[in-house]
Amino acid sequence: MHFAEFDALLEQALRRYAAQERDGDVAVFDHWRATEADLARVERRLGVRLPHQYRRFLLRYGAGRFLFVELLPADEGRRWVETLLAANEPGSGFVAVAPVGTGDYWGFVVRDGVCEDAVSFRYQEDGAVEPAAADFLEFAATEGLRAGR
């Protein structure tokens, strides 16, 4: 998926949920944008290179609540919020980016210090990993915006 296609899906979601957010019924998006310095710090501490599309997403839209999914922020200044650095251990072979709420996570498999573009689902119980989306925008559209459901 490309950003132009994702932007169209996001615009539809914003229109659909704008009234609820405006009335305070539901927090739809947090928009906790990362900076290049935030992302460089995460990559340095975890010893990985994050996917370009994911980096661009955090710089452009941010993290926190993204409609139906929570995205871990890169910014360590968020009190009471789990961050990318708190949720991940260097050398684990997986970078968790979105908690499921059951101890499971969506994230990226790491090979030779480089995160795959595909988003995978990692089970807490046994560490098993299975593919979830071809790239981060597809994941954000499917799980976050519930596009195509």
Rank of each mutant, 00 (worst) to 15 (best):
1 M>W: 10
4 A>Q: 13
11 E>K: 14
12 Q>C: 08
14 L>R: 15
19 A>H: 11
24 G>Y: 12
26 V>D: 13
26 V>K: 13
30 D>M: 04
38 D>A: 00
39 L>N: 04
39 L>R: 01
44 R>A: 13
50 L>Q: 01
51 P>Y: 03
53 Q>S: 07
54 Y>S: 05
55 R>L: 05
56 R>E: 15
67 L>C: 12
70 E>N: 11
71 L>K: 00
74 A>C: 01
75 D>V: 05
75 D>N: 14
78 R>Q: 15
78 R>Y: 06
79 R>Y: 06
81 V>R: 02
82 E>K: 12
84 L>D: 00
88 N>C: 09
90 P>C: 07
99 P>F: 10
100 V>Q: 14
101 G>C: 05
102 T>K: 03
103 G>V: 06
105 Y>E: 05
109 V>D: 01
109 V>R: 14
113 G>P: 06
114 V>Y: 06
115 C>E: 03
117 D>H: 11
120 S>P: 08
122 R>F: 05
123 Y>A: 12
128 A>D: 12
129 V>D: 08
129 V>Q: 09
129 V>W: 04
129 V>C: 12
130 E>R: 14
130 E>L: 12
132 A>K: 10
133 A>V: 07
136 F>V: 07
138 E>H: 10
138 E>V: 13
139 F>K: 01
140 A>E: 04
149 R>G: 11
